[in-house]
């Protein structure tokens, strides 16, 4: 576990794999993956996606959760380019109750912290659909700088919409602790959601297997 202020980063497994079966078919997922076609993701596709990310040495899918252990969604870095020390970052708020909260902002800050302070990146690339105000707000508060607008770039529900590009450089990153101090994050104190049903069944099956003589 990699501990932040309001959230912790954890491996994307167990409950996260179960939640992803619904998250990957919801609005927040498609906003974060703006290049992808909007298409349904059955369980097999979800499983394959997690496996693909685990095998990819230039990318990672990381879970983030509240201090009480309530899963919020995923943090992603992709296309890490070692020569230029550059990586694309994005995030999705699987549990929509957390949309626009400081928990999501802390998740993004933790991802930036990991990329700069652990993976030694020089530059983070991020992008957002122009109408995705919550994402743009999180990027700005995290210190990302607006670098341009790709005009009418993506087909979205009957229109061609702009894509906003953002970048954050290592010399603009004051360090996680300094950033947190400046922002004064507030926990939203939402009630943790019940554990996913499927997970309970899996645990029961596992318990039975372990207890079997």
């Amino acid at each position: 576990m990699f501990e932040g202020t309001l959230v912790d980063l954890v491996p994307f497994e167990d409950d996260y794999a179960t939640y992803l079966e619904s998250w990957m078919n919801e609005e927040a997922w498609f906003r974060a993956h703006l290049w992808d076609r909007r298409e349904p993701h059955p369980e097999d596709a979800v499983k394959k996606y997690i496996e693909k990310m685990e095998k990819n040495e230039r990318a990672a899918l990381i879970g983030y959760q509240t201090k009480a252990g309530d899963p919020i969604g995923g943090l992603i870095y992709d296309h890490e380019w070692s020569r230029v020390r550059k990586v694309e970052v994005t995030f999705f708020t699987g549990d929509s109750r957390y949309e626009g909260t400081d928990e999501v902002l802390d998740g993004l800050l933790m991802l930036a912290r990991y990329c700069f302070e652990t993976r030694n990146m020089h530059r983070l690339d991020a992008m957002s659909l122009a109408f995705d105000e919550a994402r743009i707000d999180a990027l700005r508060r995290a210190g990302f700088v607006h670098e341009g607008t790709l005009r009418q770039h993506i087909r979205w529900d009957g229109d061609y919409v702009d894509v906003e590009l953002y970048g954050l450089l290592e010399d603009e990153w004051p360090g996680y602790a300094a950033r947190i101090e400046a922002l004064g994050l507030q926990a939203s104190d939402l009630e943790p959601k019940p554990k996913p049903e499927k997970k309970l069944e899996d645990e029961k099956a596992l318990d039975e297997k372990i207890l079997a003589p």
Partner: peptide, 12 residues
Amino acid sequence: FALEARERCAAL
């Protein structure tokens, strides 16, 4: 072509 974005320090 229109210049749409300038990604700072993106090329070494």
